[in-house]
């Protein structure tokens, strides 16, 4: 589990810093990207074991689009995706219930922001175990 590579794609540098501290403490190797394009470049440069991403970045649907792109690509479709956002409570769209839908929201896990460090770690662990 430790040394697994986790890529965080989020445009909030402070939030990224928090997650980085939490994950690095558990010996994960953390890479970061601030938008979809940078995230895709990072993945192409070195395939991560898990991607944690926000929904709203440059556009409100950046996270959706990136997750769909990854799951359609045979090279990356096995990378588990954890979506982490605060959009659900504001839009009323039930992301959790649709997480995993191959068309609408092809992600493997979903957490609401703000997230407690232990909850984040448990979810990361669960997704990495499932992958193995």
């Amino acid at each position: 589990m430790g040394n697994s590579k986790v890529l965080i794609v989020d445009d909030d540098p402070d939030f990224v810093a928090v997650m980085k501290v939490v994950l690095e403490r558990e010996q994960y190797t953390v890479a970061t990207a601030s938008d979809r394009e940078e995230g895709m470049s990072q993945i192409q440069a070195g395939k991560p074991d898990l991607v944690i991403m926000d929904v709203m970045m440059s556009t409100w649907s950046d996270g959706f689009e990136m997750s769909r792109k990854l799951k359609k690509d045979p090279r990356y479709k096995d990378i588990p995706i954890l979506m982490l956002t605060g959009v659900e409570q504001k839009t009323g769209i039930g992301f959790k219930s649709t997480a995993g839908d191959p068309e609408w929201l092809p992600v493997n896990g979903f957490l609401d922001k703000p997230v407690e460090p232990q909850v984040l770690l448990d979810e990361v662990k669960r997704l990495l175990c499932r992958k193995e």
Binding site: D14, K90, P117
Partner: peptide, 24 residues
């Protein structure tokens, strides 16, 4: 609410890490 919650989520995240003594 989106803007306020964004700031609050980050502040809470930072403080949670410190409170749980995860920040070294």
């Amino acid at each position: 609410t989106h803007d306020i919650k964004g700031h609050l989520a980050t502040i809470r995240g930072c403080l949670s890490v410190i409170v749980n003594r995860l920040a070294g």
